[in-house]
Write a protein that binds this DNA or RNA. Structure first.
Length: 125
DNA sequence: GCCCTGACTCTCA
DNA sequence: CTGAGAGCCAGGG
């Protein structure tokens, strides 16, 4: 059974996604599709955006959710250039030394490649 | 249950 | 590299 608190209404899949996002190391980025896989939700990249939009700003279980480390498969920020969200995300990434040229990030350099230990640990939890 | 939406992705021109 | 088109699927109304 699931706990019955004010948060029980939260979709279970969202929680899986938030937890996966929390594993992204500082200074690295991953794509929506990649998070979907890590969260055990292959093929549901679009669900990631929904989950991030509703992610509690206070974080989840005492840990912040670094939503800004998620970009699209082309290495670009998925907000319209110049929009509020775009500027926030770009700023936060740059604060972590991630180089953002225009609206693009060099994935060959900044994309997180979870190692086997990481994957096994996740399956266990 | 039906219909629309979207912080996606892949393919092809 | 850029853009259009189709496929994708859970959420929300």
């Amino acid at each position: 059974m699931v706990a019955k608190t004010g948060l029980e209404a939260i979709k279970p899949n969202y929680v899986k996604i938030w937890r996966a996002v929390q594993k992204i190391p500082l200074g690295k980025v991953v794509s929506y599709g990649q998070i979907a896989d890590l969260a055990g939700l292959p093929g549901r990249a679009r669900l990631i955006s929904k989950a991030l939009r509703q992610a509690p700003k206070t974080g989840w279980q005492g840990q912040q959710i670094p939503w800004y480390r998620v970009v699209n498969s082309q290495g670009k920020i998925s907000f319209p250039v110049g929009s509020d969200g775009f500027n926030r995300q770009k700023q936060l990434l740059q604060d972590e030394q991630v180089v953002v040229i225009g609206n693009k990030i060099r994935l060959s350099e900044y994309q997180w490649q979870p190692d086997l230990i990481e994957l096994l640990f996740h399956l266990d939890s």
